[in-house]
Design a protein around this nucleic acid. Structure first.
Ligand SMILES: [Zn+2]
Ligand SMILES: [Zn+2]
Ligand SMILES: [Zn+2]
Ligand SMILES: [Zn+2]
Lengths: 143, 143
DNA sequence: ATCAGTATTGAGACTAAGTCTCAATACAAG
DNA sequence: CTTGTATTGAGACTTAGTCTCAATACTGAT
């Protein structure tokens, strides 16, 4: 999966540098969502000597490329999720952070209807669903 | 509108203090979304002597009461929107910040379907639509 | 109106998040 | 290899947001 990130970056015409390869590997071995601070901590724990700015810069690059998506957690934190470029919605487990992609089933109709009623010209939207994944439901059923 | 905020706070059993009345009035005269920093700037501009912590504390109170809703802007900033307690989705104009409420037309069906397919137990969701309001479209048609 | 008890307040220290600058480095193409 | 340029890390800096605590101001009871 790190491979895919790097290939996509290559396509985009950016240099495949050491820090970028290392960060791509760290992202690949993450499960679920992660924050910039998480990634930075990963890098520091391995003494990779990667600067804070580099982490933020790479995340911005990946987000521009739709290789990760920004997710705003219910508590207000900014997180990232590795993402198929064609999908834009996620189900986020609030217990373990697991992610499930959501198909566009019906969303576009909703936005179109909202545009019609309001007169707005809709440029983008953000849909995030929060809950508990099947595994976490089993661990602690009900609440 | 400030009146409504204060009444609702009263109902919730919190004290109706001077700073809270003043902030409610400032919120009432805002149009569209605003950030904590915006509100703080309003207060400072009028030399009300209201501390930063008080602003954040009131916004948290209002959000708990569903009197304002947190909105995460596309650029990552956290903003607030005065809000009918029963509605949870907003159309946000990226030019002027104007807000339009979105009915639940079809959203609930989408989330139910996503829950069924994924096995997640959905607790909450967040839908934000971004675009340009009719007025801003007229000012600068096309982009 | 007064009072007492407690929620709330502002100041300011503090932490975390994110940006910016700049000289040094490392990539990639020739 | 060499060369030109994108990228880098350090660290200063800016916001955003939280926390503590002594002082203050509500509120409900008297
Ligand atoms: Zn989408
Ligand atoms: Zn889970
Ligand atoms: Zn809703
Ligand atoms: Zn507008």
């Amino acid at each position: 999966m790190a491979r895919e990130l790097l290939e996509a970056l290559d396509q985009a015409g950016v240099r495949l540098t050491g820090p970028r390869r290392e960060l791509a590997a760290l992202i690949a071995r993450r499960t679920g969502h992660f924050t910039a601070a998480d990634l930075l901590a990963d890098a520091e724990q391995r003494s990779l000597g990667i600067g804070r700015a580099t982490v933020f810069r790479l995340l911005e690059l990946l987000a521009d490329q739709n290789l990760v998506e920004r997710v705003d957690l219910p508590d207000g934190r900014h997180a990232y999720v590795p993402c198929e470029p064609s999908h834009h919605h996620h189900l986020v487990c609030v217990s373990c952070g697991a992610i499930s992609e959501v198909d566009d089933c019906g969303i576009d109709a909703v936005t179109a209807e909202a545009a019609r009623r309001s007169g707005f010209e809709i440029q983008s939207h953000r849909l995030e669903l929060f809950g508990r994944c099947p595994r976490c439901q089993n661990v602690e059923p009900r609440q």
